[in-house]
């Protein structure tokens, strides 16, 4: 436990003592802010139109659901570009250590590979959580002007976080297989695109195959979270994805010593 915390602590400090964390968070928030603005102004315009229509036809104004018409699109939008920032925070985790030789320190210290991997994974997870929490400020702002339900927001963020962790786990794995950060990031991007595209393909192929493919699409599993549905099926899916990524990282590091790194 102490070793795990030591690694976690060091990784977190290293994120914030280099520009990485600041750049990633800032870029992410700029994009998140733009989409938030567009979606919310759109929603407000739509509400005004509806009000005017109601006045014109002398009807009671329709009740607009802010959860469904603003927050859910915001969460969906976030889920798309949030994951594209993750390779930037996972690429260095092992690749950098391999390049600089500090991996020799870790692998000759009384600390197990699981502790190292979990420590690094948790550091990246915490950074991604910080990114998400900043965007939550935007959503909270809606509480001042409307009456959104808190439930779907919470499940939505839980879904986003789990989705992120799945990609972080595999980002860690791709970082163990190379000493080049660019390559680690590039492979992670390919991986993300692949599991994204799988959702589109599923519509174009034979329905039986399509159903299987759709189940593998990480984004499909996020839909229910955004709707406010907390289904164990999806949680289990993400957790198994995370376990798979971490397990592969472990195997990769263990086997590297036989191959001669």
């Amino acid at each position: 436990m102490r070793n795990y915390l030591a690694v976690l602590n060091r990784e977190l400090k290293s994120y914030f003592s280099s520009p990485i964390a600041y750049v990633v968070i800032a870029m992410f928030l700029i994009i998140a802010g733009i989409f938030y603005y567009l979606i919310v102004t759109n929603f407000v315009q739509y509400c005004m139109q509806a009000d005017m229509q109601a006045q014109y036809y002398r009807m009671a104004p329709r009740n607009m659901n802010v959860n469904m018409m603003a927050i859910r699109p915001i969460l969906h939008n976030l889920s798309l570009f949030y994951i594209f920032f993750l390779p930037l925070i996972t690429m260095r985790l092992f690749a950098e250590e391999k390049k600089s030789g500090t991996i020799e320190l870790l692998l000759t210290s009384p600390i197990t590979n699981s502790q190292t991997i979990l420590g690094k994974f948790s550091a990246a997870a915490l950074l991604s959580l910080i990114m998400l929490l900043f965007t939550a400020l935007n959503v909270l702002l809606l509480f001042f002007y409307g009456k959104p339900e808190i439930g779907p927001i919470l499940t939505g963020y839980l879904g986003l976080f789990l989705l992120g962790l799945s990609y972080i786990a595999f980002g860690v794995f791709f970082s163990t297989i190379t000493d080049n950060q660019i390559i680690a990031a590039a492979i992670t991007y390919m991986f993300i695109l692949f599991f994204w595209a799988i959702g589109w393909i599923s519509g174009a192929v034979n329905p039986a195959v399509g159903k299987v493919l759709a189940n593998f699409s990480l984004i499909e599993h996020f839909d229910d979270f955004a709707k406010g549905v907390l289904d164990t099926k999806h949680v289990v899916f993400y957790l198994s994805f995370i376990t798979a990524g971490l397990f592969l990282s472990y195997v990769s590091i263990e086997s590297a010593k036989w191959r001669g790194r």
């Binding site: 070793n3 060091r10 400090k13 290293s14 600089s100 030789g101 500090t102 870790l106």
Partner: peptide, 23 residues
């Protein structure tokens, strides 16, 4: 090792503290 395993972005005392922890 031949190339000292140093975390370049850390301060000397912090680095040694980290090594002491994991050792």
């Amino acid at each position: 090792p031949e190339n000292p395993p140093l975390y370049m972005e850390m301060r000397v005392a912090d680095y040694l503290d980290f090594v002491a922890k994991i050792k």
